[in-house]
Design a protein around this nucleic acid. Structure first.
Length: 505
RNA sequence: GACCCCAUCGUCUAGUCUGGCCUAGGACACCACCCUUUCAAGGUGGCGACACGGGUUCAAAUCCCGUUGGGGUCGCCA
């Protein structure tokens, strides 16, 4: 069921009311992944989700998915689906949710009202323009100064009908917490400004809604990106002001691009679904992401998700940002491709072949065994699923009218005797009794010996004739799979090419 | 600029909490060689780091301070 929790009229009953202090310390771990659906599930978000998921699984906890869709203009249903698809692909399933933050606005507003009543928040009548002006004036002038130009905090609170936003009155003093990955972290309350919790249109801001929702959903551990560190003191203040138990916080380092800056679209592929489309296996991606910023403490590079769940611990999370290294991902993906069974490989590779127009259904009926052998040849040579169509094309498409790769042609299609050798070879191949790898190889080697040339002088030109390329799997395996007719046709084509071409050198 | 976070090979990291076993280990990438009909895979080897400066200590990559460098955050976005 995709939208578990939909029917729940409100999460409010789950909340420990203002009066109730702390859930008992031994209670079950509850973590959440709370993306805003303003983009696809990017690798950074995916890793947050992954770490939360691993932590929950490891501790027999609960993993909650909450979509923070309160920015209605930038949120869309398609994006929500993209996030769900991305998580699904990686195999990270929420235990609860998805919940939608926008459906909880009533509770958010109630929390805000309570803060106002308690004198912990106040109405601010300053306009956006005034604030912007004020900010410009204050910037560069050292100290923070009053939050707003109107000095609304000290105003007598009368609602005279003018539009106002609600600001949280930050109390003086130091705010600190024992971060799950960074250890003791603290902020000076004086450096925080009175942030807005309710917009002038009455809608809650992020700062209020996360706290309200995390409390209502009884989140015990907030594990998220480093970029939220500076929000944490504000949120702690809100928890305290509202009388909610404060969860533990853990901030993991961000994923960086090659320039060491936070990974973003301009660094290239950033959506996990894009990696799927580029031929990466979910297991490889999962493995790679888990090891980005987390370490089991030893040298293992390839670890399956089950082991990851068993061994995951917050202690293994590093403090420094980690660069996303695509080359290593590809290497790892190659490892996973190699471990695929014939059957799984066929399944994995089919969509790509279909897209490239190389697929025909007899590959899983009459030619099934043949196709399986071809895939076996290609398997150790491919690092992404996309490599298969490219490498398989000459064997599949039946289009015999390809060009010879220029560099390889220059290297191997030379010598006076070549044409003659090719003609002779063709003749012998026509009558070789068994079209089998070993016999083909013996035939080549015998002829090479008779002509007193190295076997390579026959092999390389034939490879070019048959694949158009200077590199391929072992030639005799290729020939066996290609079959006598197509081999001979391609050899004749080479001879023709050698005959017609302008005098070499 | 203010506040906060961070700092081991080009990259991901082990080691840091609980100083000595570290003349700093592994992996990716790169280079060379082996294998070999090419490519890949595999094997062997190479290149390559404790940012800097002060302390503390018999002893510091590990503890403390500072400097430098990098990053993040400073919205009626989330």
């Amino acid at each position: 069921m995709l939208f578990r929790g939909f029917e729940s009229p409100s999460l409010r009953h789950l909340a420990p009311g203002p009066g109730e202090p702390q859930m008992n310390a031994q209670s079950q771990i509850r973590v959440r992944f709370a993306p805003s659906p303003t983009g696809h599930l990017h690798v950074g978000g995916a890793r947050s989700a992954l770490f939360n998921w691993l932590y929950a699984r490891n501790r027999s906890g609960v993993f909650v998915l909450r979509i923070e869709d309160t920015d209605r203009e930038r949120s869309s249903e398609a994006m929500v689906q993209g996030i769900l698809d991305g998580m699904d692909w990686l195999g990270i399933e929420p235990d609860e949710g998805p919940f939608f933050q926008s459906r909880e606005q009533k509770r958010h507003a109630e929390d805000a009202a309570r803060l106002l009543e308690d004198g912990k928040a106040y109405r601010c009548y300053c306009t956006t323009e005034e604030l912007q002006e004020h900010r410009e004036r204050m910037s560069g002038s050292g100290k923070p100064g009053p939050t707003c130009p109107g000095g609304c905090r000290s105003l007598v609170m009368v609602d005279d009908g003018r539009p106002f936003a609600l600001r949280f009155a930050v109390p003086p003093g130091e705010i600190s917490w024992d971060d799950l990955v960074h250890g003791e972290t603290s902020f000076d309350g004086d450096s925080l400004e009175d942030f807005i919790i309710l917009r002038s249109d009455g809608t809650p801001t992020y700062m209020l809604s996360v706290v309200s929702d995390d409390a209502a959903q009884r989140i015990t551990d907030v594990i998220r990106g480093d970029d939220h560190i500076s929000n944490t003191p504000k949120q702690i203040l809100l928890y305290q002001a509202l009388g909610y138990p404060v969860p533990r916080f853990g901030h993991m380092p961000l994923i960086l691009g090659e320039d060491k800056k936070r990974l973003s679209k301009r660094h290239g592929a950033v959506s996990v679904l894009q990696y799927r489309d580029e031929g990466f296996l979910p297991g490889a991606m999962f493995n790679f992401l888990a090891l980005l910023g987390w370490s089991p403490g030893d040298d293992r590079q390839q670890i399956d998700s089950k082991t990851l769940v068993q061994e995951f611990s917050l202690d293994g999370i590093g403090k420094a940002g980690a660069v996303f290294d695509r080359a290593k991902l590809e290497w790892l993906n190659g490892l996973y491709i190699n471990e695929l069974s014939s059957h799984d490989l066929e399944e994995a590779v089919r969509p790509g072949l279909q897209a490239a127009g190389l697929w025909s259904d007899d590959l899983r009926t009459e030619r099934k065994e043949w196709f399986r052998k071809l895939l076996l040849l290609l398997q150790p040579r491919c690092r992404t699923l996309q490599d298969f169509p490219a490498q398989a094309a000459r064997m599949l498409d039946g289009c015999d009218d390809f060009e010879y790769e220029e560099k390889a042609a220059r290297k191997h299609l030379k010598g006076d005797l070549l044409r003659d050798n090719m003609v002779e070879l063709t003749g012998r191949l026509e009558i070789v009794p068994n079209w089998r790898q070993v016999e083909l190889e013996a035939l080549f080697r015998t002829l090479a010996e008779e002509r007193d040339v190295s076997a390579g002088k026959l092999i390389h030109p034939v490879r070019l004739a048959v694949t158009g390329s200077g590199s391929s799997p072992g030639l005799f395996e290729v020939l066996e799979l290609l079959g006598r007719d197509r081999t001979l046709a391609r050899l004749e084509r080479l001879v023709e090419f050698l005959t017609k071409r302008p005098a070499p050198l």
